[in-house]
């Protein structure tokens, strides 16, 4: 009963409208990139949800490790001076 090989998994990214970035919408199985694009069209854009599709084989994606969240992102937390609100500018200067 077991099929010899399962089709690889692809992650699907869609640009919703012109001028927007592609956004991850989900995944699907397909034998190659062309097949993945065709399937993505049927599975993820049945109602005009996109103007462009990217597919990436899931195995090709390198993800950050969730348990390293601390060391990875904490250093950014105490650098409040990276935000505009850190700098008080007197009102008489006007809009800045």
């Amino acid at each position: 009963m077991t099929a010899p090989k399962e089709w690889p998994l692809w992650e699907v990214f869609i640009r919703g409208q012109h001028g927007m970035s592609h956004r991850h919408v989900g995944s699907l199985h397909a034998v190659d990139a062309e097949h993945a694009i065709r399937n993505a069209r049927d599975v993820y854009t049945r109602r005009n949800e996109g103007v462009s599709i990217w597919v990436v084989e899931a195995a090709q994606i390198t993800a950050s490790n969730p348990s390293k969240k601390g060391p990875l992102y904490d250093p950014a937390k105490d650098k409040v001076y990276r935000h505009p609100t850190f700098y008080d500018i007197p009102e008489e200067v006007g809009k800045m």
């Binding site: 099929a3 010899p4 090989k5 089709w7 034998v31 190659d32």
Partner: peptide
């Protein structure tokens, strides 16, 4: 559908 699933894989491998 078994032969279709297998044929798709074989075709993709050949193309690659």
């Amino acid at each position: 559908g078994k032969w279709v699933r297998e044929a798709m894989v074989a075709h993709a491998e050949k193309k690659r």
